[in-house]
Amino acid sequence: MAHTATSSHDKGHGHGHDGHDHHDHESIKVFGFWLFLITDVILFGTLFATFAVLRLSTDGGPTPDEMFKMPGVIAETFILLTSSFTSGIAVLQMHKGNKKGLIGWLAVTALLGASFIFLEVYEFIELVHEGVTIGTSAYWSAFFTLVGTHGLHVSVGLIWMVGLMIQLARRGITPVTQRKVNIISLYWHFLDVVWIFVLTVVYLMGVM
């Protein structure tokens, strides 16, 4: 053997270190999630870049300033921002050890997320009824893809959140569920930040 472990802070070493062990594993998972978020930033960055390139390619068809209905978009924004805030409260409740509060505030967050998705789907359906689809022109291809990808991320987050609430109800607040709550709230804040960019680049710059 090379050198022998005598130091106490090596990982995965037996029943005696269980708590420590878990903590280590969980922190590694959180770190990995941060890296995943970096790759997601690049994914959205690429979509934003394509949107920027195609921002004027309406091919003589409908333009964003004709089509966008800002009140709905502003409502979506407030709902999503609020849900970010409530997911923060959920994490605070978790740190207090309040399981019911945690699940409750997660439920509020999920409900707000669902209403966001509802409004977005409604917006898309309205656009389609007015004759604007993903195939209308390059601009609308980029619009539906960028905004839709964000919506898809939120939807995945919703399913995940529901699953997590069930796990919390069954298992309570443990190091594992705690890490999961931390990660999903990180994810939720991230989607919020992406939405701010969507709002600015797609909607505000579209109608201005």
Partner: peptide
Amino acid sequence: FIDRYLGAHFFTLDGGGN
């Protein structure tokens, strides 16, 4: 894929694709 499957215009010749 979206271009081919849903008829979008990201990289097509027509529809303002690039």
